[in-house]
Design a protein around this nucleic acid. Structure first.
Length: 580
RNA sequence: GCCGGCGUAGCUCAAUUGGCAGAGCGGCUGAAUCGUAAUCAGCAGGUUGGGGGUUCGAUUCCCUCCGUCGGCUCCA
């Protein structure tokens, strides 16, 4: 089914659901009920609480409506007529929507049996054409998405042209849940969360092994691209945050503390600390562009309801960088950052989407500065011919930004990298450089992150690889499986040889059967399992088993060593076995 | 923060209408010495998320707090 038709199909399902809800409950007021990416929802205002068990009742009622095969009839009304009708039905929310239409505009409503809805359409011709649907969940949702408004009850559902496709979709959902990073994180012993620190992740040894590979890669890449790394404190005097503007614009997300008689803040961002280093000595235009990175830990007080495994936490490491530069270096630097971002995401095989966000309501600086910054970012994107989505009013309080977004296993979108222009901090901290003319000037400042938050990035790649990390990232890269106890010592010798080369290898020397050890290594998603028995000791070969490919035959140990070292060094996503 | 669901052993989950809290996996001990996804036996393991209430008696019913899950809002 084409996208447009599917939308009409699901939108009709939303209407049928609304009709069913109105039949099952009394005193229901309708909010909005659109088709969405993977289904539809409808918002309702009613006293009674809809329970998960009630979904069945509503679904049954929907079945009846489908069986009744009610035609959907479009009627064009004047605004006045529509107003009268909605007033009679006490559809207060629909009335609010109606008010916003142009006075002379005509309005369409869609009717099916005793149900009607203010709606542009299009729809199916009749409710009988709905073949497969399912109600999935209930959630609270503020009217018009504004937390000052009343919270309505939203029912999410999905609908497909036939039962088979619906079944496939539900199966896909189940499969996706299996790669949830919270589940895999527990299974592979990568990280944990504790009541004692909601939103503050704990990384276990295996998680740190991955972390260290990520940061090693990150440092190599930045060194090669002209960045210098710094480190600044987590806690700084509150005055600094007044000066930076965070106190005015970001206070509710910050944690505060006292040292002796003074007020201090735990940093929610790295920039002010970095700025102090910049200010520690005078600078010349000849140093520009000056690319300074900091893998900085920040703490932000996020609302309790939004915490989500590693993807949304209260303390995280930003792979920050601040680039100080001349105004005419902006485009080139932005392009350079975009290029780096692409390199990183390609290394992991991640697909992303770009967004450009402009000035928000709560922000500082002049319109001219904002305008200039927004145009500079857009220019860079257009120069590269990159498609992007424009988010009006979604920028940071100090400047507009380009964001890199990625989807998790359930299709939820998360921001990774970001590029933000900032004309504010240089002013607020009176940053200067000496130009070719011998005079002091104001540098342009660009903030950027590529992983975004390392914690989030880790969560994303856990889901992306479903725990089966490329060899260079795998916490354990090789596990030796001695067949019997007289093969243990030889296995240990080989293992040490790999370990000397930096490979994370280990020997399963437990007194267990081979099948048992293999099963365990498979479950741990270790890339290479090497079985060692009499045959191998004799021939100086290893029997390779790969987690995805299964048994892969024999190979000289020295050859295996060379291959895995190459695979790791080149940070390959695929095993060298796939390339043979 | 708001709306709704959930919280039982390290993990996954049981426990009839309120009546002594149980299984598998994992762990420990012992036996078996084994060639590509689970060898067998025994043992240990719990203030049923915390606090309060109703009751002769609460894992079960009520209140409250915490955490967590799905959304909303907000952001890397």
């Amino acid at each position: 089914m084409e996208k447009q038709n599917l939308e009409a199909y699901r939108h009709t399902a939303a209407h049928v659901m609304a009709q069913a809800v109105k039949r099952v409950y009394s005193d229901v007021k309708l909010g909005i009920g659109p088709a969405i990416e993977e289904g539809f929802y409808y918002d309702f205002d009613l006293e009674e609480r809809i329970n998960p068990e009630d979904l069945k009742r509503i679904e049954e009622e929907m079945q009846k409506i489908i069986k009744e095969d009610l035609p959907l009839e479009k009627e064009i009304l004047t605004k006045e007529e529509a107003y009268k009708l909605l007033k009679e039905e006490k559809e207060d929310y629909k009335l609010e929507l109606l008010e916003e239409l142009e006075p002379e505009e005509e309005v369409s409503i869609y009717k099916q049996g005793d149900f009607f809805d203010l709606c542009k359409g299009p729809h199916l011709e009749s409710t009988g054409q709905l073949k497969a649907f399912k109600l999935l969940s209930i959630a609270g949702a503020y009217w018009r998405g504004d937390e000052k408004n009343k919270m309505l009850q939203r029912i999410y559902g999905t609908a497909f042209p036939n039962k088979k496709e619906l079944k496939q979709y539900l199966f896909r959902l189940e499969e996706a849940k299996k790669r949830d990073h919270r589940k895999i994180g527990k299974e592979l012993d990568l990280f944990s969360m504790h009541e004692e620190g909601p939103g503050f992740p704990f990384l276990h040894p295996s998680g740190v092994a991955i972390w260290n590979e990520l940061t090693r890669y990150w440092r190599e890449l930045h060194r090669a691209n002209g960045y210098q790394e710094i480190r600044t404190p987590l806690i700084l005097n509150e005055d600094l945050w007044h000066q930076s503007g965070h106190w005015d614009n970001y206070r509710e997300n910050m944690y505060f503390t006292r040292i002796d008689e003074d007020n201090y803040a735990i940093r929610p961002m790295n920039c002010p600390g970095g700025v102090l280093i910049y200010k520690s000595r005078p600078h010349s235009y000849r140093e520009f562009p000056m690319r300074i990175t900091e893998l900085g830990l920040v703490h932000r007080h996020e609302l309790s309801g939004v915490l989500h495994g590693l993807l949304r936490v209260r303390s995280f490491h930003i792979d920050d960088a601040h680039i100080y530069m001349l105004p005419d270096q902006i485009t080139e630097e932005v392009l350079g950052v975009i290029h780096l971002a692409e390199e990183i995401y390609n290394t992991f095989g991640l697909k992303y989407r770009l967004e450009l966000s402009t000035r928000p309501e709560k922000s500082m600086g002049s319109d001219e500065d904002w305008d200039r910054a927004e145009k500079a970012l857009a220019a860079a994107l257009e120069k590269r011919g990159l498609p992007y989505q424009l988010n009006e009013g979604d920028g940071a309080f100090y400047g507009p930004k380009i964001d890199f977004h990625i989807e998790d296993c359930l299709g939820r979108s998360w921001q990774l990298g970001t590029i933000q222009l900032d004309f504010q901090l240089p002013q607020r901290f009176d940053l200067t450089y000496v130009g070719a003319d011998g005079q002091e000037h104001r540098p342009v400042l660009l903030h950027r992150a590529l992983f975004g938050a390392l914690e989030r990035f880790l969560g994303i790649i856990i889901e992306h690889f479903a725990g089966a990390f490329p060899t260079w990232l795998a916490p354990v890269q090789v596990r030796f499986i001695p067949i019997g106890e007289n093969h243990v010592e030889y296995s240990q010798k080989l293992s040490r040889e790999l370990e000397k080369e930096g490979i994370r290898a280990e020997v399963d020397d437990r007194d267990e059967k081979v099948g048992y050890k293999i099963r365990q290594a498979q479950k741990e998603k270790i890339p290479y399992m090497l079985a060692i028995g009499d045959r191998e000791m004799e021939s100086e070969e290893v029997s390779i088993r790969h987690r995805q490919k299964g048994e892969a035959g024999q190979m000289d140990f020295s050859r295996f060593k060379g291959q895995i070292l190459k695979e790791v060094r080149e940070r390959e996503i695929e095993s060298f076995l796939e390339k043979e």
